[in-house]
Design a protein around this nucleic acid. Structure first.
Lengths: 253, 253
DNA sequence: CGGCCTCTTGAGACAGTTCAACCTATGTGG
DNA sequence: CCACATAGGTTGAACTGTCTCAAGAGGCCG
């Protein structure tokens, strides 16, 4: 560290969504932050629909999403798509694709996005330099897994309306943590096809479900804006408990 | 290391299923193995049905499964159960419950099991002492996530028969990697209720599905023994591609 | 202006559920 | 050692949530 003051200033400016997210779990010290900042070289812009990570291809990069929305998905042999999750700023894109020889999923930009490429070596070097980062990344991956598990419960045991309610509550909570939008009123660029492919429904049925939720005065979704009208009743319908997002302040000091 | 020879001998004997699994991803050196061996103090036995990890409880331990079968699951507000995955020797039980303040899931023994308790501090110390282990554990967690993702695809986009076929093929592959049973003929202690709760079906429908698969000469499942009669046709039906199990020899040297 | 994407609604079909009954194997207390 | 309870498995009949197919409307962009 030749210029500690300048460096620290630079780090504060660079405070990325990822840094904020990981800091919510472990208290990162300057060395950790410096190491983490290396993840943010190689920043790039991608247009909507661009596929950043390709299922079945080897030796791929991961990315850290800085701006915009993306989704990770698998295509089944019959051409059907299952969306696994949507990513918002601070989320990893294709983390498993640098740990696995061959990527088991694809990632696509939904809006115009900005993302920094992270090479396999970046990650492994970071773990050697800053073991606390390893814990933080494992935590972030576990939080992603917790969301997939919750979605699994939705597809396995919840009705279409419960799924939709649960999904939109989760989305609101995630965006709210980031400081993007409100718990009950947020912008959302997803189409009804996206929702269907994520929730294991057809787009046609998504439309009917949204209509019923609207007619029940529970929520509206129009022109890319979700407005939750009756939060408590919606939570009751969905059986929503934000526990699994594990968001209440740093655990590890 | 006072007695390098004795230590190494001890490590070889201690070669646990976990060690073998992680070694399939990173080449672990003696120091790593020694650190890993600490995960295997506090070995305990649990009877069938015993709940080792409790959803909603704080400050819980994780375990490494050494013998037997377990399952991780969530209970929804209406009392329905969604089984997230089954664990076999070498798998972590409740890893997320030491990373999260509050466990987001429960874990229960299916057969009589042997498992070693792993404290939060064990894991964090191990990461500091042996950064390669951090990578290996992240890989193991990612592999678990890949299985959950694949199950998500099943529940979202596959028919009941395709789900069952896919699930049993995955199980055969996992057991085969461990050297327990054959790809096409293995012991399986799961009831039709377990299968239903894992696959998002009722036990009644599981029964009908198994009958149809049997009548099609694809597989039989009787008295805790699964026998796959026509592997290729079953793989075709399920759209099964073992890629996501990422099993082809050490990646990281 | 025409084409494409997204949303909307209706009618009929079907995969999987629900409820209910019965069967077999295993274990347990009297 | 029988009586009974319990857990797992099997099958039928009726029901229903979601899908499929089909058609049309609105908005945006080249």
């Amino acid at each position: 560290m030749r210029h500690p003051f300048l460096l620290k200033a630079a780090l504060l400016i660079l405070q990325s969504a990822l840094t904020r997210k990981l800091s919510a779990f472990v208290s990162l010290v300057d060395d950790d932050l410096e190491t983490l900042a290396r993840f943010h070289q190689r920043r790039r812009t991608f247009m909507p629909g661009h596929e950043l990570v390709h299922e079945g291809e080897k030796r791929q990069s991961a990315f850290v999403l800085a701006e915009g929305w993306a989704c990770s998905f698998k295509i089944l042999p019959d051409g059907e798509r299952q969306i696994v999750d949507f990513q918002i700023p601070g989320d990893f894109l294709g983390l498993r694709s640098i740990l696995f020889r061959t990527s088991d999923h694809s990632v696509q930009a939904i809006t115009r996005i900005e993302a920094s490429e992270v090479l396999s070596s970046d990650l492994l070097n970071a773990f050697a330099d800053a073991p606390r980062l390893a814990t933080a990344v494992l935590w972030a991956a576990s939080r992603d897994e917790a969301m997939v598990v919750e979605r699994l419960c939705s597809l396995g045991r919840r009705s279409a309306e419960e799924r939709m309610a649960h999904f939109l509550l989760e989305l609101g909570a995630r965006l709210n943590i980031l400081g993007i939008g409100d718990l009950t009123d947020f912008a959302c660029p997803l189409t009804q096809y996206h929702l269907g492919d994520a929730l294991g429904l057809t787009a046609v049925h998504v439309n009917r479900v949204l209509r019923r939720l609207r007619e029940d005065n529970l929520l509206t979704m129009r022109n890319g804006q979700v407005t939750i009208l009756d939060l408590e009743r919606l939570k009751g319908l969905a059986g929503f408990d934000a526990n699994y997002l594990d968001q209440d302040g740093p655990l590890l000091r």
